[in-house]
């Protein structure tokens, strides 16, 4: 995204996608601040990286794999205890339609 595009409208859209609530009055400020940050990173874009494989990780050359062996995870009670609401069997969330 170029900084010209980072309008208050674009910030509002990003906020919506990220489920963040940003008051209308702050959109302009936030857009300005984000443009600054992105502008800083943008300096990197001046480096010509054509034909250079992106660095995914500096320590690991490839993805480690594990054998396909099943093992128990955590007890249901412990898993459910991490949630704000549950019914002893499943996580309780505001109603949604599957699909």
């Amino acid at each position: 995204m170029s900084d010209e595009e980072l309008t208050p409208e674009a910030v509002a859209r990003l906020a919506k996608l990220a489920r963040l609530s940003v008051p209308q009055a702050e959109l302009e400020t936030m857009a300005r601040e984000l443009r600054k940050i992105i502008g800083y990173v943008k300096a990197l874009q001046e480096v010509d990286t054509r034909g250079v494989e992106p660095t995914a990780h500096v320590l690991i050359p490839g993805l480690p794999l594990r054998p396909d062996e099943a093992a128990p995870g955590v007890e249901r009670g412990e898993a459910l205890a991490q949630a704000a609401r549950h019914d002893g069997e499943g996580f309780r969330v505001p109603g949604f339609v599957e699909g």
Partner: peptide
């Protein structure tokens, strides 16, 4: 490593990775 078998009681095949708990790291099968 959680089992993939079908039909288990709800939320009995879960662990920090598939629950999305902070700090848990995925390792590919």
């Amino acid at each position: 490593p959680c089992p993939t078998s079908f039909g288990a009681p709800p939320n009995t095949h879960v662990c920090p990775v598939c629950l999305g708990l902070p700090g848990a790291l995925p390792v590919l099968n």
